[in-house]
């Protein structure tokens, strides 16, 4: 029986989907990582030095306003990391690309650290401003639940031996946790109560952060985004290598 060329050789994915191939993904990450690490370090150093040393005190909050350069970018990344994990989990569930499942797994520890920074800096900022380290405010509470979801997500990956089953179950957990990622962002708007203020950076609002704080904050946000990208690319590479090592070890054991 003769086969046509189309049926004999499966069509290779092109464009974005070609990076589902682990070798191609590793090649890309090796090329872009040096630039990403460099840009992340540069923007974080410039943004934090600018914000810490060269911005004035706020007329109401005094020098505590300097905490904004850590609190806002880390809180943004805590939510965005979960959104990235959600997209990667959906790609795994729909298209079964292993790299996307590993990328979601790689992003979780980065997200949990971002959430922890947001919670810690929020508590440290809240104490002198609100008179308390913690309040069961809608945004704070949904952030705490998001933090617990991150821990549960990481624990679930570690608890299940079969990687495909682990990827399936963690993807479902990620879908459920997305409710709290959304709530962390919009709880202030949904429930008009609590201590936490609304968005500080909305471009459509008249009351916004003053320019003198705004520009260094943008540099810090860029730094956190770049650091997140660098860490996720690097850690996904690590996960791919660990998976390959386990596969080779299993083959060795069979021989």
């Amino acid at each position: 029986m003769s086969m046509t060329e189309d049926t004999a050789t499966p069509k290779r994915p092109s464009g974005f989907w070609s990076y589902a191939n682990p070798v191609k993904f590793l090649g890309l990450s090796e090329r872009v990582l040096p630039a990403l690490w460099g840009l992340a370090a540069l923007s974080l150093i410039v943004g934090l030095i600018w914000g810490f040393f060269f911005t004035p005190d706020d007329f109401r909050q005094g020098s505590t306003v300097k905490i904004i350069y850590l609190h806002v970018p880390s809180a943004m990344m805590a939510i965005n990391a979960w959104v990235m994990m959600l997209v990667a989990s959906l790609i795994w569930l729909i298209r079964r690309h292993h790299v996307s499942a590993l990328a979601a797994k790689a992003a979780a520890p980065v997200g949990v650290v971002m959430t922890l920074i947001a919670l810690c800096t929020g508590a440290i900022w809240g104490q002198p401003m609100w008179g308390d380290w913690w309040a069961w405010d809608p945004r704070l509470t949904s952030f705490l639940i998001l933090f617990l979801f991150y821990l549960g997500y990481i624990a679930l990956w570690e608890a299940i031996e079969d990687p495909d089953t682990a990827a399936d179950l963690t993807s479902v957990l990620c879908l459920v946790g997305s409710v709290f990622a959304v709530l962390s962002r919009y709880a202030v708007n949904f429930w008009n109560q609590g201590l936490h203020q609304g968005a500080s950076l909305s471009l459509d609002k008249e009351e916004n952060v003053a320019d003198v704080f705004y520009f260094p904050l943008l540099v810090c946000i860029a730094g956190f985004v770049l650091l997140f990208l660098a860490l996720v690319l690097y850690r996904t590479g690590t996960e791919i290598r660990l998976r390959r090592t386990r596969a080779l070890q299993a083959r060795e054991a069979r021989l």
């Binding site: 040393f53 020098s63 505590t64 905490i67 609190h71 440290i124």
Partner: peptide
């Protein structure tokens, strides 16, 4: 070093932890 006033502990600990 900028003068952080009475909130020096809060600001420095936030930067330190992060």
């Amino acid at each position: 070093m900028p003068d952080l006033g009475k909130y020096a502990d809060a600001v420095l600990s936030a930067y330190g932890v992060s």
